[in-house]
Computed example of a mutant assay.
Amino acid sequence: MKRLLPIVAVAVLAIAGGAYWMNTQQSAPVAGVTNIEPVSSDGADVETSGIVEMMMGADDAPITIVEYASFTCPHCATFHTQVLKPLKADYVDNGKVKFIFRDVYFDRFGLWASMVARCGGPEKFFGITDILMETQSEWTRAGDPTAIAGSLRKTGRLAGLDDDTLQACLQDEDKAKALVGWFQENAAADNVSATPTLIIDGEKHSNMSYDALREILDAKLGE
């Protein structure tokens, strides 16, 4: 489980370098999270209304699960492949659970991955997320930031996004700031300090196995 840094810093995520944009000779600039304009501890000073909640399942499902996860968190990748997949098949697809994925950013690479996953809109988000989580150990270790950005673009292309669309998403400075503010706002509201964290009908839970999660859900459903 990865633990969050205190949600009070100017940039929230202090990473090496001093520029908001990462400039390289090999590729166009990519949005980062260093030196983001000051925001309050709950993200209230940043306009976040344009950020879309990524969810799947029926709106009227009797149970709502919110997962806080980072694209660079190994435990989140394990949860995604070992817990979320059977959860979707057994509870989400049949209308028992509405599942909401909320991004958490430990570093600029997790933010870039989120921007690529969101680049195709809600229709492509979970498909791209599946690829990013399943290949996390590969793209996070691709090398320097340029290589990692290149690997993320490759994932976007596999999902049917063209290079111009991907670059526009990765260069969207306002979106990057809004996502960080949105993350702060959500994490403060739900008192999230580590990933993955689950909020099941408003009750916070730490990482768990599928069997443990199924026990909680079946008890709620009276099954």
Rank of each mutant, 00 (worst) to 15 (best):
residue 69 A to G: 15
residue 199 I to T: 07
residue 221 L to K: 07
residue 40 S to V: 02
residue 119 C to M: 06
residue 143 G to H: 00
residue 8 V to G: 06
residue 46 V to F: 07
residue 143 G to Y: 00
residue 51 I to W: 08
residue 42 D to F: 04
residue 13 L to K: 05
residue 155 T to R: 02
residue 87 L to Q: 03
residue 89 A to R: 11
residue 185 E to Q: 15
residue 51 I to Y: 08
residue 211 D to H: 09
residue 69 A to S: 15
residue 131 I to Y: 05
residue 175 K to Q: 14
residue 126 F to Q: 08
residue 59 D to H: 10
residue 163 D to C: 01
residue 88 K to V: 14
residue 178 A to S: 14
residue 69 A to R: 04
residue 133 M to W: 01
residue 36 I to A: 01
residue 144 D to F: 05
residue 186 N to P: 03
residue 117 A to C: 11
residue 38 P to C: 06
residue 81 T to E: 13
residue 27 S to A: 13
residue 35 N to W: 07
residue 149 A to C: 00
residue 140 T to S: 02
residue 133 M to V: 04
residue 134 E to A: 14
residue 9 A to Y: 09
residue 94 N to M: 04
residue 165 T to C: 01
residue 39 V to L: 12
residue 213 L to R: 01
residue 188 A to T: 15
residue 175 K to V: 00
residue 205 H to V: 05
residue 171 Q to R: 15
residue 76 C to M: 06
residue 155 T to S: 06
residue 103 D to T: 03
residue 31 A to P: 00
residue 17 G to W: 09
residue 133 M to T: 03
residue 123 E to G: 08
residue 131 I to V: 14
residue 131 I to C: 02
residue 46 V to T: 12
residue 40 S to W: 03
residue 109 F to Q: 14
residue 159 A to G: 13
residue 64 T to P: 01
residue 79 F to I: 09
residue 131 I to H: 09
residue 182 W to Y: 15
residue 143 G to V: 04
residue 100 I to Y: 10
residue 45 D to S: 14
residue 109 F to H: 15
residue 76 C to T: 09
